[in-house]
Simulated assay, not measured.
Amino acid sequence: MIDHVHDLASVREATDRLLTAAAKLDDAAVAAPSRLPGWTRGHVLAHLSRNADALVNVLQGRPMYESAEARDADIERDAPRPLAAQLDDVRESAARFQAQGEVPADWDRTVELRNGVTDRAVRVPFRRLVEVELHHVDLGIGYELEDLPAEFTEREIDFLADRFSGNATVPPTRLLAGGREWRTGGEEGTEVTVSGTAADLLGWLAGRRDGAGLEVRGGTLPALPPL
């Protein structure tokens, strides 16, 4: 059972970790490339701020973003800001998200995210946690997939395995890590088994690693569709 109160607390802790780490940067480091192609660290921080506000929109029943173009334009506008402005925005937007999460609501209701994707409101705090944790790694400032809380790593593998489940472009795939097993992919073809550390498995599923650290049996490492 998903506990949105627990997840909101996890978001707060993860945001504090990110802010503490990012505060050690300077303006030049914020303008330097992140691990995401074409994005500086400023782009990542700007995205985190605008994503928090977008998820407030979702919880309040409004469109997540005005449009894809407006989303991208807002990130480009905010990316060049100095470190102090970035940190203030991440902190203040995070506070707005937390405040919305504390408003009494029907957490079983269906909400709409981007591109027509729907989900239960109770899953929105975990979706925010994914943004904060993975983009902290994307900043490339010493926080790695191995540093992620074990509970988060397992839940995100759960989510991504489910996301690719039934996708005919991915062969039937058995995933093994840390004594746990997942299945994903389509139903046609020979099953492939992919095993390794939870961090390497998450990195591959989330598009953060190429899978070189994983062991593959029964075929080659499947090519995953973009997230």
Rank of each mutant, 00 (worst) to 15 (best):
I2P: 09
I2H: 09
D3E: 06
H4R: 01
V5P: 08
S10W: 09
S10F: 07
S10A: 15
V11E: 02
R12M: 05
E13A: 13
D16T: 09
R17P: 11
T20K: 09
T20N: 03
T20Y: 02
A22D: 03
K24T: 03
K24A: 13
D27S: 07
A28H: 00
A29S: 01
V30E: 01
A32S: 12
S34Q: 07
L36C: 14
G38R: 02
R41T: 03
H43W: 14
V44S: 02
L48G: 01
L48C: 06
N51L: 13
D53W: 04
V56W: 11
N57G: 03
L59F: 10
R62Y: 06
E66P: 10
S67G: 06
A70N: 08
R71Q: 06
D72P: 10
D72E: 15
D72G: 00
A73K: 03
I75Y: 04
P80D: 08
P80M: 00
P82E: 05
L87V: 01
R91M: 12
S93R: 10
A94I: 01
Q98Y: 02
G101F: 08
E102S: 12
D106R: 01
D106M: 12
T110E: 15
N115M: 14
G116E: 12
T118P: 05
V124A: 02
P125T: 03
R127D: 14
L129R: 05
E131G: 00
E131T: 08
V132Q: 03
V132S: 07
V132K: 00
H136K: 04
D138N: 06
D138C: 08
D138S: 03
G140F: 03
Y143C: 10
Y143R: 05
E144Y: 06
L145D: 12
P149R: 01
A150S: 13
E151C: 01
E151I: 06
E154H: 01
E154G: 10
E154V: 11
E156R: 06
I157N: 08
I157T: 09
L160F: 13
L160Y: 07
A161K: 02
D162L: 07
D162F: 11
R163A: 15
S165K: 14
G166V: 04
G166H: 03
A168K: 11
R174Q: 02
L175N: 06
L175Y: 07
G179H: 08
R180Y: 08
E181V: 12
E181W: 04
E181M: 13
W182N: 00
R183Q: 10
E188K: 11
E188A: 12
G189R: 02
T190H: 08
T190E: 15
E191H: 02
V192H: 05
T193M: 05
S195L: 05
G196A: 10
T197L: 13
T197V: 08
T197P: 13
L202V: 13
W204S: 06
W204E: 07
A206F: 09
A206Q: 06
G207A: 07
R208V: 11
R208Q: 04
D210Q: 07
A212N: 09
A212P: 04
G218V: 09
G219A: 01
G219I: 11
T220K: 04
T220L: 12
L224G: 02
P225D: 05
P225E: 03
P225L: 09
P226S: 10
